Simulated scan of single mutants.
Amino acid sequence: MVAAGVNRADIMQRQGFYPPPPGASDILGLEVSGVIAAVGSGVEDWKPGDEVCALLAGGGYAERVNVAATQVLPVPEGVDLVTAAALPETAATVWSNIVMAGGLRSGQTLLIHGGGSGIGTHAIQVGRALGARVAVTAGSQAKLDRCRELGADTLINYREDDFVEVVTAEYGGADVILDIMGAGYLARNVEALAEGGDLTIIGLQSGSTAELDLGSMLFKRASVHVTNLRRRPTEGPDSKAEIIAALRERLWPLIAEGEVTPVVSAEIPIVDVARAHPLLDSADSVGKVLLIVRRP
């Protein structure tokens, strides 16, 4: 192990709100990078000594991890081994939701809540690489400025502006919305959708229970998805293996070409993990926080 990515799921698990799936390690950590030490029988794609990154269901805050071969990815061309730890969970979450579920394509409008987060900074670049118009919300000018640098077209300070009004006025609504907030944003997200739009909820920071206006959904022919990456099956339809294969085929070339790059806000020694978690909510933090196990 070289490094591990820090995700909000780690904080939720630490606080007792997000237990690991049955059979998964109860150690925190959903994405890592490092060098393969050994492979199991029948594994042909990987060998000891390969530099890789990997998606986990748990156990990433460690010196060694055990992971299914189908959840391992090569370090993308142009990315160093430490920085590669910022990719697996983040990339899998973004791609599976805005592309595989949301069907985002060129010419559409993508609205991202939390544009300055690890998920947000990655989603901005993916949306731009696919030819979409990108609108983001964030709570500070520093975060919005960074979102602009990454390619966001429309910047919305949620403390001052109504994202529904902005997105509706500029684009007639969003074709795809990637939401980390949950219940507190549900009604306004539906209002912000364009006809045929897709709302994907991946976080519940503003609650888990809300009323859904089915009449508005019916009128717009819209869809709402609530998804979870960690509890997907390892193999089969809608599995982690399916997502990882899509990343390697379609996203990894975009990273190699420099159209999508990992955004890292801080690198913290793993022994100081207690200092790393609060950075996710820091006004000064933009992008991913990494825990360094050892330098390569």
Rank of each mutant, 00 (worst) to 15 (best):
R159I: 04
N189E: 04
E160R: 12
I156K: 09
E160P: 03
L150I: 04
C147H: 07
D153R: 03
A152Y: 03
G173W: 00
A194R: 12
A187R: 14
Y171L: 01
R188Y: 08
Q205Y: 00
L150F: 00
N157S: 08
L155T: 13
L204K: 12
T154W: 05
Y171H: 11
G203S: 07
C147T: 09
R188I: 01
A152L: 02
L150A: 05
L199H: 11
D153N: 08
V190I: 15
D153H: 09
V176N: 09
V167S: 00
M181N: 13
A183N: 04
A152Q: 01
I202W: 10
E149S: 07
Y171I: 01
L204D: 12
G184H: 06
T168E: 11
I177G: 02
T168G: 10
G173E: 02
E149V: 00
N189K: 02
A152T: 04
D153L: 00
A194I: 08
L155V: 11
I180M: 15
I201F: 00
G173C: 02
E149N: 04
A152K: 01
E191A: 15
E195Y: 13
A194N: 14
L178Q: 10
V166Q: 15
A194T: 07
I156Q: 10
G197R: 00
E195I: 13
I202S: 06
D153K: 02
G203K: 07
C147W: 06
Y185E: 09
A192S: 15
A183P: 02
G196V: 05
D179N: 14
L204Y: 09
C147E: 12
G196P: 04
G197H: 02
L204A: 15
D175Q: 09
R159H: 15
C147S: 12
E195L: 12
A169E: 14
T154S: 09
E170W: 08
I202K: 05
L193S: 01
A192L: 10
N157Q: 09
A194Y: 06
T154D: 15
L155H: 11
E191Y: 09
L193T: 05
L150H: 06
D198K: 14
R159M: 03
L204H: 13
E149K: 08
L193D: 01
G182D: 04
E165N: 07
D162P: 02
M181W: 08
D198G: 13
T168A: 13
D179Y: 08
D153A: 03
C147Y: 04
D162E: 12
D179P: 11
L178V: 09
V164W: 03
E149L: 01
I201Q: 08
T154M: 07
G151Q: 05
T200L: 11
A192P: 04
E165C: 06
G197P: 01
G173D: 02
D179R: 10
V166N: 14
I201P: 06
A174M: 03
D161K: 15
T154L: 11
G173A: 03
E160W: 03
A187L: 12
C147K: 10
L199K: 12
R159F: 03
G172Y: 03
D162A: 09
N189C: 06
Y185T: 15
D161G: 06
E149A: 06
I202N: 05
N157Y: 08
